[in-house]
Design a protein around this nucleic acid. Structure first.
Lengths: 131, 131
DNA sequence: TTTTTATGACGTAAATTTACGTCATAAAAA
DNA sequence: TTTTTATGACGTAAATTTACGTCATAAAAA
């Protein structure tokens, strides 16, 4: 199907086609898997795990002085906060000059549930690897 | 401490120093968090999730024809298999020309446990974000 | 009103990841 | 013995991530 498209186009726009092809193949993974992977990805950096832990400890919704707690510059921490926000695990509320970040407890619960489900499905005890 | 080192060195090797500094700061995250993040990272790509699911379905330990199931080239799939193997979630056993891959059920269980623990610690219901 | 202060947008270098192709190799099959 | 076949090592281009610095801006504080 992707192949068909290629035949209709000439070489000048080949790079564009290859790009589209790349997307086509990428899209072959189910939306569900991609979604699942995205959440795992959000948790794939110690800084982001650290941020989540910090937000859980300081129950009050705390501003960007989280940066002072981490061995990273403020802008870098900000970047990580943004990623967590984009995936919905935390929420940021502007309050004057400051921004209060806090955990989205529900989102975390939901992710926990789906992660458990995914990992649970893998645990089939009939697998005997080293026979 | 890192700062101290910098003062002793001259500019010529500044880039090296910055590299070391980077490592120093990186090491400030606890080994535990780094480990945790590594596992999440292993699951941060749909191809790798897909591989795990495939291995769970085809209970028998199956060879690299996993590649035929995925929208990726054999070498790319091999790369993903390698990553899963490095983090210990799967095991590869050479059998003649072929290599049998299979799930490391115990490792998956262990990861599941630690992930649940990590995510559970974040779920403190006293957090009220939007007051 | 002027000065701080906290923030995020923007740009960027370096590192890492992703996706592939090519090759050499070891072992099955012919 | 020669030919296939499956695999992983290696190299590489393109994309993405990571870490930071600089700047403009909006709102507190002085």
């Amino acid at each position: 199907m992707g192949r068909f498209v290629v035949h209709l186009l000439d070489k000048h726009i080949k790079s564009k086609v290859q790009y589209d092809m790349a997307n086509l193949t990428k899209n072959t993974f189910s939306a569900d898997l991609i979604r699942q992977a995205k959440f795992f990805k959000a948790l794939s950096h110690p800084a982001r795990l650290s941020i989540l832990q910090y937000l859980a400890e300081t129950k009050t919704c705390i501003t960007g002085d989280i940066a002072d707690e981490l061995p990273l510059s403020r802008t870098t921490v900000n970047q990580h906060l943004k990623e967590l926000k984009e995936v919905g695990l935390i929420v940021g509320t502007v309050e004057g000059v400051k921004t209060n970040y806090c955990l989205n407890t529900q989102a975390i619960k939901d992710f926990k549930t789906s992660a458990i489900s995914f990992l649970g499905d893998l645990n089939i005890d009939t697998i005997n690897c080293k026979k």
